[in-house]
Design a protein around this nucleic acid. Structure first.
Length: 645
RNA sequence: GCCUCCAUAGCUCAGCUGGUAGAGCAACUGACUUGUAAUCAGUAGGUCGUUGGUUCGAUUCCGACUGGGGGCUCCA
């Protein structure tokens, strides 16, 4: 008998060689029907694999990420089997599960594969799934594995096998399809009841652009048809929130072929939104002791030679601007920090005045690869809500904590509740890759971790993800389509103070080198606005909404009264417009609803007589008639509620 | 930058296998003077992204370019 420890801590005894499936059966029929894989100690296993010694076992179902992984991994094999049947002789790369589904990289030879072929493949997958083919695991020797794929002529699998150690290689077979695979897999294919191919794209073999490009086929599968339907509905919903679509509909921003790709043009409404965000952060930064500065859009090449960016990025940047004078070269500013270093250096600094916090909404230009551009989230010209904090080494932790506070304040005011903080530390194996003293790094890394803990952030720690000049903490959020974006960032920098020879005079009357922190709560205004649009589906918090009200006169007889109302509101800094078109009220309401104006103020005979307005809230409907003064009071207290948290 | 798909009126889209384009909305004009999600009628608007080629003839077929979508690579 062996002891099996379950996740609730209970221990059960089973015969040696018991499978996870049998364990599930012994617990409940329902569980046995739903179990997809099992975590045995720390490895995920097939549920029909015998367990021969004491172990901790966690049964995994569709509700576990690891269960889903197994489901989708097996689905990738099913996709491969279907493709092989339909297109004999094709070769296979890798086919892993991903966050939403799975993909398989295949070499289709000269064959074309497009969306038109999806239906046939989906049909074949479901047909094969119904065969209830078992996934059988088999350990093979390296020689056998090599022989198998040599005969099959699949150089990609051979390339993979080359890097595997003999004795650790396993094959999985379902139906007629044999694949090199570590597993685990579902017991059989019949669990897969719904399948949909999502996308085809090119992907280099092993992510190396010098190697052959394979066809990557993305798909997703579910244990129930209904779940697929729901998933597709969610995707439709997400598409409606796409910031590129809403940005156009709400007239926030646009792009012009003539201006150039990746260079957004902010329309009046988008500009209002942006300026309100800036004002909001400016205020918060003033409270937090930042000093605004302004620096030009171009700078002499020498600045970037000093900062080291020229050497590292010069060739991949927008190329220099030349003047009529021989040898003079200027670069479009790709970042604000070198300028801020020069501001710091403008006079000697005492330890007493540190930290110095210099803030700038600085517009920068970076030559991003054309294929990487995407709406407002990835552009070639953007404005960072940048600031650089120059402080003493002993102030790093406190400053870090203060920045986290600021970022959390911003997130909270804007309703971002779903974010994670990624802490990027250096690779402990490769310390020589990084600039700065070992001791300083250790201190800074500890400071970041402690600060994050104290603020109770949900964090993931990535070793080796630090920049060469210092560790960092990034706030990540997801957009409507589930893509992750980095918003706020806080980075420690040991490099620039060194390169710019920054100094302060310490209490000991000696020169010391300050530590520099880069930080940007929004990251860039462009990206932040994009994520915000998707986050709220275009229904901005009222303090940010470009038009905060729309006055809708019943007929043109009330135009004059509408104008009076508008002026009263504008005096209180509430912004909006009068819809004075010659249209029926129903039409005006509809158009205002579609354009997502938070408040519609209807004025007609009754309102004019009573010196009132009828308030209709976007998405909610008629709130009844109140005086303009009452409306102003309500409006202002709503904003205060959102901002003073 | 690479692979792949796409490009028709301001917007959303139709246009079968090649014979120089159509709808709805928006715009403009007129009528209606309106009470909580689209009043009616009329007018105007396109060298079918650009550019080569095939053809008697190209929005339609082929190539290149530009821009966009999806992905790969990269990201101070």
């Amino acid at each position: 008998m062996i002891n099996i420890t379950l996740p609730d801590g209970s221990v059960r005894q089973y015969q040696e060689g018991v499978t996870s499936f049998e364990i599930a059966q012994s617990i409940s029929e329902g569980l046995a029907r739903n179990v997809l894989a099992a975590k045995v100690n720390d490895t995920v296993w097939d549920i029909n694999r015998p367990i021969n010694e004491d172990a901790a076992v966690q049964l995994l179902t569709w509700n576990d990420d690891l269960g889903k992984n197994t489901f989708w991994h097996s689905s990738a094999h099913l996709l491969a089997e279907a493709l092989e049947e339909l297109y004999p002789g094709i070769k296979f790369g890798i086919g892993p599960p991903i966050e939403n589904g799975f993909y398989y990289d295949v070499d289709l030879g000269d064959r074309q594969f497009s969306q038109d072929d999806f239906a046939a493949v989906e049909k074949k997958m479901l047909e094969l799934a119904r065969n209830k083919s078992e996934f059988t695991r088999r350990e093979v020797s390296k020689a056998e594995a090599t022989d198998f794929f040599t005969e099959k002529g699949d150089e990609y699998k051979l390339d993979l096998i080359k890097d595997l150690a003999d004795g650790t290689i396993t094959f999985y077979t379902q139906g007629n399809f044999v694949d090199l695979c570590r597993g685990p897999h579902l017991p059989n294919t019949s669990f897969i009841k719904a399948a949909k191919l999502m996308n085809v794209a090119g992907a280099y073999w092993r992510g190396d652009e010098k190697r052959k490009q394979l066809t990557r086929i993305y798909g997703i599968t579910f244990p129930k048809q209904k779940e697929l339907t729901e998933y597709l509905e969610r995707l439709e919903e997400a598409k409606k929130r796409d910031h590129r679509k809403l940005g156009k509909e709400l007239e926030l921003f646009t792009f012009s072929e003539k201006v150039g790709m990746g260079l957004p043009l902010w329309l009046p409404k988008g500009t209002l939104l942006r300026e309100r965000l800036e004002q909001f952060l400016r205020k918060a930064q003033t409270r937090a002791g930042y000093q605004p500065v302004v620096t030009p859009h171009i700078a002499s090449k020498e600045l970037y030679v000093t900062s080291g960016h020229y050497e590292k990025y010069g060739a991949d940047s927008f190329q220099p601007i030349k003047t009529p004078n021989e040898g003079e070269e200027f670069f479009l500013k790709p970042m604000n920090c070198p300028h801020h270093c020069e501001i710091y250096k403008t006079r000697p600094r005492s330890y007493k005045e540190l930290p110095v916090r210099l803030a700038e909404f600085g517009t920068v230009y970076r030559y991003e690869q054309s294929g990487e551009l995407h709406g407002l989230t990835r552009v070639r010209g953007f404005t960072q809500d940048d600031a650089h904090i120059f402080c003493r080494p002993d102030q790093v932790k406190e400053e870090f904590t203060k920045v986290i506070d600021l970022v959390l304040y911003v997130f909270k005011a804007l309703g971002f509740n779903d974010y994670t903080a990624q802490i990027s530390l250096r690779d402990p194996e490769n310390k020589q890759k990084y600039i700065g003293a070992d001791e300083a790094w250790e201190k800074a890394e500890a400071a970041i971790i402690e600060a994050a803990q104290e603020k109770e952030l949900r964090t993931v720690t990535e070793l080796g993800e630090a920049a060469f000049y210092g560790p960092k903490l990034d706030f990540m959020v997801k957009d409507a389509l589930g893509r992750k974006w980095q918003l706020g960032t806080i980075q420690v920098d040991y490099n620039l103070p060194e390169r710019f020879q920054l100094e302060y005079i310490g209490a000991d009357n000696q020169k010391h080198r300050p530590v520099m922190l880069h930080r940007a709560p929004f990251g860039s205004l462009e990206r932040f606005v994009a994520v915000l649009i998707e986050h709220c589906g275009g229904n901005f918090p009222i303090w940010l909404s470009p038009d905060q009200f729309a006055i809708l006169p019943i007929s043109e007889k009330y135009q004059e009264y509408a104008q009076q109302v508008k002026e009263s509101l504008e005096q209180e800094d509430i912004r909006g417009y009068i819809d004075s078109r010659d249209e029926k009220i129903g039409r005006k309401i509809r158009d205002a609803e579609v354009s997502k104006v938070p408040y519609m103020l209807i004025v007609g005979e009754k309102e004019q007589e009573n010196n009132a307005i009828s308030v209709r809230k976007h998405g909610e409907g008629d709130l009844g008639s109140i005086s303009v003064g009452e409306f102003i009071g309500m409006f202002k207290s709503k904003i205060a509620e959102l901002l003073n948290n």
